[in-house]
Amino acid sequence: MLFSGLGFNVDDKLKKQLNTNKDMIDILINLGNNEVIIVECKTSKEKGYNKFSTVSRQLKSYQKLALHNDLRIVKILLIAPEFSDDFVTDCEMDTEMNLSLITASTMLKIYDSFKQSKYPSFPYVLFRDIVINEERILKALTK
């Protein structure tokens, strides 16, 4: 709902085509021209999201799935309640994925700010940091 509200094309049809019994992408945003954003959501109830190696294997499987289907991955977003310092450090060291981390509360604030902005769709290039900088994005949306 949030990503649709940001003006993104949440493509459930393409997601179903890509998903396998083993690899199931949470959210797939179709940007057109065979470009996608992969979104993985974690909850505080899930154990293991605090271990980057576990999540990394999962996301790399999704990446492989998309690339195998001739899709260009513009960004992989991981949404969770919070991230440990170790998790962030491990993420920063990963050179195989274009991964950004965003907390659920930051995502909600971005959504709320976007609704007040002049943009018809969210400028996804703002998702460029490893850990999404809430203040920078909110400031950019008010310009």
Rank of each mutant, 00 (worst) to 15 (best):
E135T: 13
I37E: 02
M107L: 15
C41F: 12
L126A: 03
Q58S: 05
N21C: 08
V125N: 11
G32L: 12
K16R: 11
D12C: 07
R57C: 10
L6N: 00
I79A: 08
N98L: 03
S61T: 12
N133I: 08
V10A: 02
K51W: 00
P123H: 05
F3A: 00
D112I: 13
M93S: 14
D94F: 03
A140K: 14
F52G: 05
D112T: 08
K16S: 11
L78D: 03
L77F: 11
D85K: 14
E92G: 09
N9D: 06
M24Y: 07
F122D: 05
E35I: 05
S117F: 07
S56P: 04
Q116M: 15
N34R: 14
K51Y: 05
N133V: 08
T89V: 13
N19F: 08
Y49D: 00
Y111I: 10
I79V: 15
V55W: 03
L71R: 12
N69E: 05
N69I: 09
E92Y: 07
I130G: 00
E134V: 02
N69D: 03
E46R: 03
I27V: 15
K47Q: 07
I29N: 00
L2T: 03
E40P: 01
T20S: 09
P120L: 03
A66D: 02
S56G: 07
E35F: 09
K45P: 00
L101W: 04
L28A: 08
N9I: 14
L141M: 04
I38K: 04
D26A: 07
M97E: 02
Q58G: 01
D26Y: 06
E40L: 08
N30E: 11
V55Q: 09
Y62H: 15
D90I: 01
V88E: 04
A80T: 09
R136C: 05
I37K: 02
V36F: 00
F52V: 10
E40Q: 13
S61H: 13
S44Y: 10
I132M: 01
S113T: 15
I29A: 05
L67T: 13
N69C: 04
N9R: 15
L67W: 10
N33L: 14
S105T: 14
D94L: 00
T89S: 11
G5Q: 09
L77M: 14
S105R: 11
V55D: 02
V10M: 06
